[in-house]
Design a binder for these strands. Structure first.
Lengths: 232, 232
DNA sequence: CGACGATTTGAATAGGATCAATGGGAGTGG
DNA sequence: CCACTCCCATTGATCCTATTCAAATCGTCG
């Protein structure tokens, strides 16, 4: 693979502390690939032959059942995805497609498992990563079971505003159709939720959302660190 | 702790293969306790001071927000819970209460983390356990986002029937109020969902549910291995 | 037997989905 | 540069699912 991207990958929590030799071995088996937007990389039910590492771009993890489809998570650099399937040597529970042009590192699952078995530091990092992911999904489940559509949107906006630097402006990184699926509603309902939030200072123009009354919005959304704080 | 229960714990996937000395050390720091029904063991937001291991009974993991409350998972022996919080040394995302009289082993988090850092075999088992848990939550999230209330109930019944031996009879291990919360609906709506399923051979009498037309029920439920199979 | 909590049933309401139609940008080609 | 087209987003109307509030019934335990 191109050595130019290696430092980035090496900085990942997952790899930062592991032994040089093991890291090299992992990377020698790996290959970096660029994908155009809207390419499906993985399909639920398929065996997990590779661990995927987002280097650039974005990937939507989604799932389908009985004609319905929903987004589970949007992965952004620099992160791994489908780590759990790789470690258990189990089929994917989710499909994944690029949402934009993306650069992705693919590491054969066998190599991940092999290094994992012999590099203690790596194993530890894997556990931390996995635990973080687990908690992320639990938060998402809580959000869906304890909030209605408008509240989910309001909290999403607040979270994203903070993530993007707290400037009072949110730039949506995905189209509204995908956002609707992520938040567990239809695109029509997302539109209406935005309208509902207008009195709380939410001004939509295309993918740019201005939050002009953050305190009001916050008092509606009632964000909880145990759902919305990405660090806890 | 009482040595009588040790073999049971030792057989847990999590501990089965680890070094004797390390297991002993873990268990020496641990203590076993019996709790009556409806005792709250952990509270969301609190620090994870112990890893909990169900030896007997049942624990409901639930979460609350803005006056609402919902069940996330029912833990049954022999399993651990809140492993992720322990490993990350982070606050609980869920509260937990016993649903019946329960015997529970409590291991101080520090000891878990310490042994984890030096027993490779244990670390590996932890990862497998954690990955399995992660996939469990993903399945639950998929179920909630891709199915309506009746479908969730139908699949729950089919899963439970299989778990309990495939005799065509399901014995609910929790009260209907809790089941409703677990399935993400109100108790009233659960009652109505049962009525809806009557034409599909679902006969309710108290906590005993007879499934007399499993094929019909299955064709309604459309179970998917990627949501309902506990082993994948 | 009586009382209490759990469950069921009924009626009204609300939240969200669906179906249909319109509006609006971004990109394309003339 | 403008018109066209296509796709996404919005709006409207209606339907359906699920929640809420209220009341009746069932079951269990003292």
């Amino acid at each position: 693979m191109r050595s130019i991207d290696l430092p980035l990958v090496r900085e990942l929590d997952l790899f930062a502390e592991m032994e040089e030799a093991n890291f090299d071995e992992l990377m020698q088996a790996a290959f970096l690939q660029r994908f155009p937007p809207q390419v499906q990389l993985i399909t639920e039910g398929d065996p997990a032959d590779f661990l995927y590492i987002m280097v650039e771009g974005g990937v939507e993890l989604f799932a389908a059942n009985g004609g319905r489809e929903t987004s589970i998570e949007i992965m952004r650099p620099v992160t791994t995805f489908i780590l759990a399937a790789v470690l258990r040597d189990a089929p994917f529970l989710m499909s994944g497609r690029t949402v934009e042009s993306s650069k992705i590192l693919m590491v054969p699952s066998e190599n991940v498992r092999a290094i994992f078995a012999r590099d203690q530091v790596f194993a530890r990092a894997v556990v931390r990563e996995l635990a973080a992911r687990y908690r992320g999904v639990v938060k998402s489940l809580k959000s869906h079971k304890l909030r209605n559509a408008v509240e989910r949107l309001a909290n999403y906006l607040l979270r994203t505003e903070t993530e993007q630097g707290g400037t009072g402006v949110v730039q949506l990184q995905i189209d509204k159709r995908t956002l609707a699926a992520l938040l567990g509603m239809t695109p029509e309902n997302l539109s209406r939720a935005f309208v509902t939030l207008k009195p709380y200072g939410v001004e939509v123009s295309g993918r740019e959302i201005r939050l002009t009354k953050i305190d009001d919005l916050r008092s509606l959304a009632k964000p909880s660190p145990l759902i919305d704080d990405p660090t806890t």
